[in-house]
Design a protein around this nucleic acid. Structure first.
Lengths: 226, 226
DNA sequence: TTACCATTTTAAGTATTTGTTAATTGAATG
DNA sequence: CATTCAATTAACAAATACTTAAAATGGTAA
């Protein structure tokens, strides 16, 4: 972490100060910005190795900024970490789609943050990202480029919602996602759809993945397992 | 291309005039020089976005000039395109090694040149250099010099947009390009065109390539496959 | 210039796929 | 064994893409 240039972007001065202080203590060279537009300007100037972006910001939010940063030749190779409030879970997906390399949820745990940054710098960019073909185990592979899953050699191209669902469930094998989780992350907090909708999509997935891959926890939710 | 500063470097006044006239017509601000030494002087002065360099020139040839331009802080970020005679193939390799971003062979095809410049300015440096005839699989060959595709022996000369689209889609067979991707890469982030425009171009391509080559993923985008 | 032609974009109606709901059946839990 | 929740199916609704034609656009030649 010594000598690494880090650009911090957040609209809350407290967060900025806190992180700035601590990252400097670990040897980083820290720059700051308080919204997306500023971030881009600063980034073009200092060419940071790593950019830590808050998702919720005025003027230009983190997602937009990230997309733009990925376009610019000066900054497209920088690593980008998103800061997301735990409630706005959906943004994780949007964030990764926008080209982020990792995301960390608030409230911030400093040790976790430092560890993640270290790991990232060590392993190089995109170590954590699910990009291209990801083997999620159980003979199931997910291909983010072609929006398809491969189960024991059989490839299925999935419709959007099904793909989002399988991506979510396999993002943490073994973890149980409640129906509420699923609604929040895939449909977004404000869209209202009936509970049966989830069942139906689960069913369609099971038809393709096989009945044994997704298990139901009655009254709780679903999990992907193998 | 509007407002882009382009520095043309060639020892033949005819070529200079011809290009100068046409690039200006497309909204570029054009500067000229007739050898490498001059080119460097002018470049330091005007800080061009793009430099078009003839390889064969008196006093200082294009390769030398390019190397030098890449050293200078004022010009190292400019994009550089080489003009090479078709026979002097070696220069392509030498040129790219010297730090050029693309090369175009003489005799010049204006449409090709303009398109390559547009693409380069849009996508930023290091547009993939796909030169000559590329076999992208599935019985489809793409010819970058003549803007044509060959499908099972049948050759079609494509209009610009169609050509750009097929080039994009075939640049990664199997990968899905979202509509947003396509708009960004082909039209550029700021141009606003309706979604149907993409459909129509896709359709025209399908009429030529065959219906099975490009597949639609509803709600997501398109991919080239075979 | 002016008229013409090729290309690109928009528009409108149709077709298809995907997503959702509702009604019923089935399974698990206490 | 009754109650609750999930699974299933098919029918319906909504979203999205396809097709065709016609209107802009822009370049080229008389």
């Amino acid at each position: 972490m010594k000598g690494t240039k880090i650009l911090l972007v957040d609209d809350e001065p407290d967060v900025l100060d806190f992180l700035s202080y601590n990252l400097k203590k670990h040897g980083a060279i820290v720059f700051t910005a308080s919204d997306g537009k500023q971030a881009i300007d600063v980034a073009k100037e200092v060419l940071p190795d790593l950019i830590i972006l808050d998702v919720m910001m005025p003027v230009m939010d983190g997602i937009e900024a990230c997309k733009e940063l990925r376009q610019l030749p000066e900054t497209k190779d920088a690593m980008i970490i998103f800061l997301t409030a735990r409630t706005e879970d959906y943004s994780q997906i949007a964030g990764l789609e926008a080209g982020a390399d990792d995301y960390i949820s608030k409230p911030l745990n400093l040790r976790v943050l430092i560890t993640r940054i270290d790991a990232m710098l060590r392993r190089g960019r995109r170590a954590e990202v699910r990009q291209g073909i990801v083997d999620v185990g159980g003979g199931v592979k997910i291909n983010n480029e072609s929006f398809s899953v491969t189960v024991n050699g059989e490839e299925y191209t999935l419709p959007k919602k099904e793909f989002e669902l399988v991506t979510l469930l396999t993002s943490k094998p073994g973890k149980v996602f409640t129906r509420e989780d699923i609604l929040n992350k895939i449909w977004g907090g404000d869209v209202v759809v009936g509970d049966r909708t989830i069942d139906v999509h689960i069913r369609k997935l099971r038809q393709k993945l096989g009945d044994d891959k997704i298990t139901t926890l009655k009254g709780i939710g679903y999990k992907f397992e193998f």
